[in-house]
């Protein structure tokens, strides 16, 4: 099967001289749910802009399902759906009209576009809003509209550029289910996000871009195996009165009820709970201090991660 996306020696230098991409190479298999991560300004949106024909290539090749996007841009455009990071909706026309127009640009008749709009809007819970303009929609509804719009022509590849930014938790979970459902149907999904737990939960493979270069490209499983240590926060139901020492674990008291435990990757949560029970500490709850992807991300990019990450 052909790769959904193949990027070969891709470079981009903007007119102001800023070198946004430095010899990027990347392959994404068809059917993958791929996380494309990086700090702000790393080059993610430039790569997405190039794939979607909104940014010109300085040098290099991008292939969509085996076809060079420079030689055959229509092929790429027909096979890709884009959900951009910024709202790019016509603010003055009803959202159903937006769908029919975009369908029309892809050669879809109004009748067919109408039935697809009905289906997508119902799946995303915005059919009742079809006569409103984007100005009258909440941020979450606009996001859903942009997702529906990207799918009107049934693309094989869906590119999601921070699709859940500014979306409440409940809606985010609903959107995750929606993305997983369409991925199961064979649509390759490329996701950029600042919510690393989102990437960890949804994606099979990932690449991290930093300062215009790919610094990590692997499967999620490999990411988990890369970390030597992990850190948990443990909440006790009883007051912890003295310093605790545990074999094989580093313990740090945070307050009278909370301790931070760092251990090697080979240990699991039940090992920690057993050790604590031996010390007569009953565990109320235990959580990862930081998810593993987040730790790796910070190590690789040497950046702080924003609070929402």
């Amino acid at each position: 099967m052909k790769n959904a996306l193949e990027i070969i020696n891709l470079n981009k230098t903007y007119r102001n001289g800023f070198e946004a991409l430095k010899n990027i190479n990347l392959e994404i298999e068809s059917g993958d749910f791929f996380a494309f991560l990086g700090p702000n300004g790393a080059g993610k949106s430039t790569v997405i802009g190039i794939i979607s024909s909104l940014v010109t290539i300085s040098s290099g090749t991008v292939k969509v399902l085996g076809e060079d996007i420079t030689d055959n841009p229509d092929w790429a455009k027909k096979n890709i759906g884009i959900v951009p990071q910024e709202y790019n909706l016509n603010q003055f026309i009803p959202i159903e009209e937006t769908m029919l127009n975009v369908g029309g640009y892809f050669g879809i008749t109004r009748e067919v576009a109408h039935s697809r709009t009905y289906e997508l809007f119902n799946q995303l819970g915005i059919w009742e809003k079809k006569d409103l303009t984007p100005r009258e929609l909440s941020g979450g509804m606009k996001r859903r509209l942009m997702i529906a719009r990207a799918l009107i022509h049934k693309p094989n590849i869906l590119i999601l550029d921070e699709p859940t930014a500014g979306v409440d938790t409940e809606l985010r979970l609903t959107m995750w289910d929606f993305f997983q459902e369409i991925n199961k149907k064979g649509v390759t999904i490329i996701l950029t996000t600042h919510y690393l737990e989102e990437a960890e939960r949804l994606c099979k493979n990932l690449a991290i871009i930093h300062k215009g270069e790919i610094i990590q490209n692997s499967s999620m499983t490999d990411i988990y195996n890369m970390k030597k240590n992990k850190t948990y926060l443990v909440k006790s139901s009883d007051r912890i009165t003295s310093d605790i020492k545990l074999d094989s674990f580093n313990v740090n008291m945070l307050d009278e009820y909370t301790i931070e435990i760092t251990c090697e990757n080979r240990f699991n949560i039940s090992d920690i709970i057993n050790e604590l029970n031996k010390k007569s500490i009953s565990v109320l709850n235990i959580i990862n201090k930081r998810n593993q992807l987040e730790e790796l991300f910070m190590e690789l990019t040497n950046t702080g991660v924003s609070n929402d990450s």
Binding site: L54, N88, N90, Q91, N101, Y105
Partner: peptide
């Protein structure tokens, strides 16, 4: 107006 709102992108990412 389409450029300002970026809604022209709808057209530019399509095979028109």
């Amino acid at each position: 107006s389409g450029r300002f709102q970026k809604s022209t992108e709808e057209l530019l990412v399509s095979p028109v």
